[in-house]
Computed example of a mutant assay.
Amino acid sequence: MSSYQVRPATVRDAKAIAEINATSSRAAYQGLVPDDQLGTLSIDKRQQFWRDAIEYMEPQVQVATDGDKVVGFVGFDRSRDKGTPSACGEIWAIYVDPAHWNQGVGVALWDAANDGLKEEGCTKVTVWVPVRNERALRFHEHAGFKREMASLKTVLVGTVKLEEIRLRRDVG
């Protein structure tokens, strides 16, 4: 049982979400994206994105807290992939402050997203993960996601091309 509380995000959480998004991205993408690009991640742009997401509920955003401090977040909604059935959801983003990695925050956030997707009538859920992000792949596979090998695609992150793979599992 997690000691972290998960709740719907409020607009006031946008700055903390943006900071976690940037800090966790820097840690997770170290060695995959050049340090000079990681150092330019804009908290202001991310804060505006997450403020809008929270306000318009696209995606739905939940935060994990440790006391009053936001330590992680998850954004989820219907899948953005073309041709996907309406009953397929997607984890758009799931990030945890690196100081709280391996402490159950990600599991608490995944459980909240799973419950939210179930409430929305989703029966399947997907997530896109860079192939070289072994930590994220392990997390999702531990949560029951399976790689869809035919889904491999190349995405541009800054000036770097990364291979991503879609993982899928049942909502339940």
Results as ranks from 00 to 15, higher is better:
residue 142 H to E: 12
residue 29 Y to A: 06
residue 170 D to S: 12
residue 101 W to C: 09
residue 157 V to I: 12
residue 55 E to I: 00
residue 155 V to Y: 05
residue 29 Y to V: 05
residue 102 N to D: 13
residue 19 E to Y: 04
residue 2 S to K: 01
residue 118 K to H: 03
residue 156 L to C: 09
residue 13 D to H: 06
residue 116 G to A: 01
residue 14 A to H: 04
residue 64 A to V: 10
residue 157 V to W: 10
residue 119 E to P: 00
residue 19 E to C: 07
residue 14 A to C: 11
residue 23 T to P: 01
residue 103 Q to G: 08
residue 141 E to H: 12
residue 137 L to W: 03
residue 54 I to C: 01
residue 139 F to R: 02
residue 48 Q to V: 14
residue 128 W to K: 01
residue 8 P to G: 02
residue 164 E to V: 10
residue 57 M to P: 00
residue 133 N to L: 04
residue 130 P to H: 03
residue 34 P to I: 04
residue 153 K to I: 11
residue 115 D to W: 04
residue 74 V to M: 02
residue 42 S to D: 08
residue 50 W to Q: 01
residue 58 E to K: 14
residue 79 S to Q: 02
residue 82 K to Q: 15
residue 28 A to E: 03
residue 171 V to M: 03
residue 144 G to K: 13
residue 73 F to V: 07
residue 3 S to H: 14
residue 131 V to S: 10
residue 34 P to Y: 07
residue 143 A to M: 15
residue 110 W to N: 14
residue 93 A to H: 06
residue 55 E to M: 12
residue 74 V to Q: 01
residue 50 W to N: 01
residue 131 V to G: 00
residue 89 G to D: 07
residue 162 L to T: 08
residue 148 E to Q: 15
residue 68 D to M: 06
residue 159 T to L: 04
residue 152 L to H: 10
residue 150 A to H: 05
residue 36 D to W: 10
residue 4 Y to E: 05
residue 131 V to N: 02
residue 15 K to T: 11
residue 39 G to H: 03
residue 30 Q to I: 02
residue 49 F to E: 12
residue 138 R to G: 09
residue 80 R to D: 08
residue 144 G to V: 03
residue 24 S to H: 00
residue 148 E to N: 13
residue 95 Y to F: 10
residue 145 F to P: 09
residue 53 A to M: 11
residue 155 V to H: 08
residue 116 G to H: 03
residue 93 A to D: 09
residue 100 H to K: 10
residue 110 W to S: 12
residue 92 W to K: 13
residue 5 Q to L: 15
residue 168 R to M: 15
residue 8 P to V: 04
residue 165 I to T: 14
residue 90 E to V: 03
residue 66 D to Q: 12
residue 62 Q to W: 15
residue 97 D to S: 14
residue 3 S to V: 09
residue 7 R to H: 05
residue 133 N to F: 06
residue 66 D to A: 15
residue 82 K to S: 14
residue 77 D to P: 00
residue 90 E to M: 05
residue 70 V to R: 09
residue 154 T to G: 00
residue 165 I to L: 12
residue 26 R to E: 00
residue 25 S to I: 07
residue 22 A to Y: 02
residue 13 D to W: 04
residue 72 G to C: 02
residue 161 K to F: 08
residue 59 P to N: 06
residue 162 L to D: 08
residue 5 Q to E: 15
residue 121 G to W: 00
residue 5 Q to A: 15
residue 138 R to T: 15
residue 19 E to N: 08
residue 129 V to Y: 14
residue 135 R to Q: 09
residue 140 H to L: 04
residue 124 K to A: 12
residue 141 E to D: 01
residue 48 Q to Y: 11
residue 128 W to R: 05
residue 115 D to V: 10
residue 60 Q to H: 14
residue 35 D to K: 14
residue 69 K to V: 13
residue 41 L to G: 05
residue 104 G to P: 05
residue 12 R to N: 15
residue 95 Y to N: 09
residue 109 L to H: 07
residue 87 A to C: 14
residue 96 V to W: 04
residue 15 K to L: 15
residue 24 S to A: 10
residue 172 G to I: 11
residue 127 V to D: 09
residue 2 S to L: 05
residue 98 P to L: 07
residue 136 A to K: 05
residue 157 V to H: 09
residue 51 R to S: 14
residue 114 N to A: 11
